[in-house]
Each structure stands twice: as structure tokens, then as C-alpha cells.
């Protein structure tokens, strides 16, 4: 279980996050929404240990993890998948997955599962990751995270730069993954698709939590669209 309380963080002296709190339980998907520049990626990177928080608490299964390095957090079961489908381009698909595993046995067992879910990766198993399409690289990045058996998975914009057709299978994969007892935190722009499969959601605005609730309630909330699109009084279609 991941618990964040009154988190403040930023780059240098520039504050980005102000008083952010959240909690995710095993088996649950929490969706983080917000306009560009609201601090979503900063939130994930701070929890993952890339940025030291200036105040607040981050607890993983009750233990404080604020200020720990990203490497050590992976060992404790907290895994971040960065945005932009980042894999290691000069390594093969096989090696990319292998690097994610925490033990040889994990690698052997879980790799097969990944390849069953994403058959295209089996097809390109010996190809260099640089020769994959954006969507395939995203599958690979998720596969690499999957074999590390995280208890908390954080995923920054899994749909970024990916062909529309590939987004549902990727989000479904995350849904199934969560159902098996992993706590999943997703930042996503495609709020339509993402809200449909999330359990709970929160909206960040200028580094603060503007709205939070169940995914179902937020879907119906007009304010989500307003904040997301930035204008309170106009729907784009109405303007025209």
C-alpha cells in the first residue's frame, strides 16, 4: 500500500507540488489527471525517488521511503515506468525484459507471461528495441516492469505517442495487472479511456489536488472537463 501525505516538491527552488496527499491500495487503479504542467510527472518522479521532497511523507507498506534512491525503491517493490516509452534502444527485446527481472527464476516464469499477453514481442524477441514502434516499445517497457513483480506500479502517460489502436490493449494489461493485487498509479491524458478502467481518480491543478473521488463520480463531474480543458465557461464545441 502506498500512502502520500502533504507532499511538497520541486526543482531547485521552483516549487511544483503543494500539499499533495493520496493513497492506493493493492488491486486498485488510481488515475492522476490534470493539464500539462500541473505537476503530474513531478508527483510520480518524487514518489519514485528521482526528486527529493521538500516536505511531506511517502510511506510504502507503512515504512517511510522519502529520500531513498529509485534503485533501492525498485527492490522494495515500487516501480515507475517513465513517459515516452523509454526502453534501452541498443538492447534486444529479450535483454530489455531480462534486465527488469529481480531473479533468474522470475525472468524465466514471467517473461513467458509477458510474451503471451503481447505476442508481437515474442515475434520481435531478438530484435533491437530501437526497431520497435512506439506502441511496441511501451509494451516492452511495461513488460520490463512486470517481471520485477512490483507491489506498486506507477506509469507515466502510457498512451503518449502511441497509435490509437494500441491504447486499449495496453490499458487492459494494466487493468488485469491491478486485478492480481498490484496497486497501480497512472498519469494519463486520454481521460475518456482511462477513466473507464480506473477505480479512483484525482485531478491536479498547479501542483495541488483540485478534485478527487471515484472514477465513476468524476466521469459525471463537469468540473473535470472544465479543469482539464482549462476553461470554466466554454465547451469548445459551443464556442464554434
Amino acid at each position: 500500500m502506498l500512502e502520500v501525505r502533504s507532499l511538497h516538491a520541486g526543482y531547485g527552488r521552483v516549487p511544483v507540488l503543494r500539499d499533495v496527499s493520496l493513497q492506493i491500495n493493492p488491486g486498485e487503479i488510481l488515475l492522476v489527471l490534470g493539464p500539462n504542467g500541473a505537476g503530474k510527472s513531478t508527483l510520480l518522479r518524487t514518489i519514485a525517488g528521482f526528486i527529493a521532497p521538500s516536505a511531506g511523507e511517502i510511506r510504502l507498506d507503512g515504512q517511510s521511503i522519502a529520500g531513498r534512491s529509485p534503485e533501492s525503491l525498485v527492490k522494495r517493490g515500487l516501480r515507475l515506468v517513465l513517459d515516452g516509452h523509454r526502453v534501452f534502444p541498443e538492447l534486444t527485446v529479450a535483454d530489455n525484459i531480462r534486465l527488469g527481472a529481480r531473479s533468474k527464476r522470475d525472468a524465466a516464469q514471467l517473461t513467458d507471461q509477458v510474451l503471451d499477453i503481447f505476442p508481437i514481442l515474442r515475434e520481435k524477441y531478438r530484435a533491437h528495441a530501437r526497431d520497435l514502434s512506439g506502441g511496441q516499445q511501451q509494451m516492452l517497457a511495461l513488460g520490463q516492469a512486470f517481471v520485477s513483480r512490483p507491489s506498486v506500479l506507477m506509469c507515466d502517460e502510457p498512451s503518449l505517442g502511441i497509435a490509437q489502436a494500441l491504447i486499449p490493449p495496453i490499458l487492459n494489461f494494466l487493468r488485469n495487472w491491478a486485478s492480481n493485487g498490484t496497486a497501480v498509479l497512472i498519469v494519463e491524458q486520454q481521460i475518456g479511456v482511462a477513466l473507464a478502467m480506473a477505480d479512483r481518480a484525482m485531478v491536479l491543478e498547479r501542483g495541488q489536488v483540485a478534485l478527487a473521488g471515484t472514477a465513476a463520480s468524476l466521469r459525471l463531474d463537469r468540473r473535470v472537463q472544465e479543469i482539464y480543458l482549462g476553461f470554466g465557461d466554454t465547451d469548445p464545441a459551443n464556442v464554434a
Binding site: 490509437q164 491524458q189 486520454q190 481521460i191 475518456g192 479511456v193 473507464a196 472537463q225 482539464y228 480543458l229 469548445p236 464545441a237
Partner: peptide, 8 residues
Amino acid sequence: LFTGAADA
């Protein structure tokens, strides 16, 4: 474009 961003 709109539906992709705002509502599916």
C-alpha cells in the same frame, strides 16, 4: 481530437 481528449 476533442473526443480523444475530453470524452470517449
